[in-house]
């Protein structure tokens, strides 16, 4: 079996003057959940469309399940995909929509009802697609992607427009699939939605791959911050000076001191404030998000 589910080499797509993806190089290992993260317009959907043979790259190559993307017929039978914004026939029911795709792909029609059940649409399967809520449309899209019982599942912003419980459900489905051996490549413009479930992350910004690797690598770069707030604002600079003199790295944000230090330092900080006659209204430890950590690591501020 191939080691990599997806591998790209200088994959590039240029629209007019702009590169939607520029020299994209990344690898999605087999059997993992891999997050594909970047702000809106960073090139995620464009990349996914190239991987599915829907648009032709301007230059560069890629392989999916070991086959070149110039021959999508070799790997697509084993790939399930939902591209941003689920698109179905509005006048057909959810069930009929899935049957159209099942017939097209040569999958047994009996899968349709199983999948409707799986995404919790069994009771609304007979309603027309145009009557569905955004969450239901999104779930129908996931069901369609699962039709081939895929080795590789590609989901483009599957949690867009879902409420927190819907997001939770999608995460559950993704985890279940990964547990049964499916490789999942899932995109989002919000890193925090993916960081908990993804073993690997690929980060995209303005058409460039800025990080590609284990989520763990990012986590280990994560430095906790102690937030201390004096009772009176006038004490802020005084305390800041004392801490800086003792070698702490600090910054003042919204009337609080942000001190780069591990949790163990909070007792020291509390004592130093007390000795200086300053009462702290609060002191707490927070972990920055992976996003903040990432931009910290790359020295990129945003």
């Amino acid at each position: 079996m191939e080691k990599t589910a997806i591998s790209t080499s200088d994959l590039t797509k240029i629209y007019g003057e702009r590169a939607a993806l520029s020299h994209g190089n990344f690898v999605v290992p087999n059997g993992s959940i891999c997050g594909f993260v970047g702000p809106n317009g960073s090139g995620k959907t464009t990349t996914i469309r190239m991987l599915l043979g829907l648009i032709a790259p301007t230059s560069g190559t890629a392989t999916v399940l070991g086959e070149s993307i110039s021959h999508p017929e070799k790997y697509l039978p084993h790939v399930g995909a939902m591209i941003e914004g689920p698109a179905f026939y509005p006048a057909l029911s959810g069930r009929e929509n899935l049957k159209v795709l099942a017939e097209l792909g040569g999958f047994p029609l009996s899968r349709v009802d199983q999948l409707l059940e799986k995404v919790d649409l069994a009771d609304r399967g007979g309603s027309k697609f145009k009557t569905y809520s955004l969450g239901m449309k999104q779930r129908l899209g996931i069901a369609a992607a699962l039709l081939p019982n895929p080795k590789l599942l590609i989901l483009d912003e599957p949690t867009n427009g879902l409420d927190p419980s819907g997001i939770q459900e999608v995460r559950g489905i993704i985890k279940d699939l990964a547990d049964s051996g499916t490789t999942v490549f899932v995109s989002s413009h919000i890193l925090s939605e993916l960081e908990m479930i993804c073993e690997y992350l690929i980060m995209l910004r303005e058409g460039r791959v800025i990080f590609s690797g284990r989520t763990q690598e990012l986590l280990s770069g994560q430095k906790p911050i102690i937030v201390a707030k004096p009772e009176y604002d006038v004490d802020l600079t005084n305390l800041a000076k004392k801490l800086t003199d003792s070698g702490f790295k600090i910054s003042i944000v919204d009337g609080s001191l942000h001190i780069e230090a591990a949790q163990e330092a909070s007792a020291t900080i509390n004592r130093m404030a007390f000795e200086a006659g300053i009462t702290l209204a609060s002191i707490s430890v927070v972990l920055p998000t992976l996003e903040e950590t990432f931009f910290e690591m790359t020295g990129d501020s945003k």
Partner: peptide, 18 residues
């Protein structure tokens, strides 16, 4: 034409790339 305007062509082509 509606396969384009509805965006459903991409689903068809993923299931039948030819």
């Amino acid at each position: 034409a509606q396969e384009y305007s509805l965006g459903t062509l991409r689903n068809l082509l993923v299931r039948q790339p030819s």
